[in-house]
Simulated assay, not measured.
Amino acid sequence: MKLAVVSLNSIWEDKQANLEEVKRIVQSLRQKAEYVIFPEMTLTGFSMSNLSLAEDFKNSNSIRAIQKLAKEHQINIVFGLMISKDDNKYNSCVAIDNKGEIAGHYEKIHLFSYSGEDKLISSGDQVKSLSWKGGWGLSICFDLRFPELYQELSKENLILINIANWPKTRVTHWRTLLNARAIENQSFMIGVNRTGVDQNGLEYEESSCVFSPIGEKLEPSEILDKVKIFDLNLDEAIQYRRSFPIKKDRRNGIYNIFYS
């Protein structure tokens, strides 16, 4: 399967400019990739204090625009967006299939209290997956530091993804944790991070990458500007899990006691 990851330099709070760049990138990928993944808060950057950026999930102009784009170019798209449901705001990951339909969405469970994210928006409380080829487990940025989430996701999914705005100052953690999540879950671990400098003065290094189920950092088959294209063989994960079945040795009952 051919999958593209986009290290987007999101323009701060400028949805229209970022949407135009998303359109340009998707158009460039026609017949080159089946799937494309953009970073956390794709169209605004990690702006948590401006809650007016949130869009009603059932009536979102941004989601409609991405749906149209996915259908037109027959590509599956994952992107980040702040959404509102009733009176709550969420940091979300939204997946649109190549027919332009919403395939799934995930609300970030672990909010980044260090930046005050937990004071401004609500946390999700549901583990979410996509029924796309191989099964895809969804996560966002700070979630990466909580391995329990990925143990749950990897029960049914061969692909785990994390969309992020992960600053350069901690980029070593980013790469190390992605590698660890791949190894301990015997899954492809895909991390998609933004680039550039945001309005808070935080710098982001180009660091989007993919690790194999045995923990090898994969090389892209093609690089196009901000985009890396990877060709994943899902049989690698299936065969590795069969030959080295570590999940059967987990003591889930013990862990439930620890975390209750």
Score class of each variant (00 low, 15 high):
K23D: 10
K23T: 08
R24M: 08
I25A: 08
V26M: 10
L29R: 03
R30S: 12
R30D: 08
Q31G: 05
Q31F: 12
A33E: 04
E34I: 01
E34Q: 13
Y35K: 09
V36K: 09
I37Y: 12
I37Q: 08
F38K: 08
F38R: 10
F38H: 07
P39G: 09
E40C: 14
L43W: 05
L43A: 06
G45T: 11
G45N: 12
M48G: 03
S49D: 14
S52G: 13
L53Q: 09
A54I: 02
E55R: 09
E55K: 02
S60L: 07
S62R: 01
A65Q: 07
Q67D: 04
K68F: 06
L69V: 07
A70F: 01
Q74P: 00
I75M: 11
N76Q: 06
I77N: 02
I77R: 05
V78G: 09
G80D: 06
L81N: 02
L81G: 00
L81R: 03
M82R: 10
M82L: 11
I83Y: 01
I83P: 00
S84W: 01
S84P: 01
S84M: 11
K85P: 00
D86M: 11
D87I: 12
Y90R: 02
Y90T: 02
S92R: 03
S92G: 10
V94P: 10
A95E: 07
I96N: 12
D97E: 13
D97T: 05
N98D: 15
K99S: 14
G100D: 04
A103V: 06
H105R: 09
E107G: 00
K108P: 06
I109M: 15
I109Q: 13
H110Y: 14
L111D: 00
L111T: 06
L111A: 08
L111V: 04
G116Q: 09
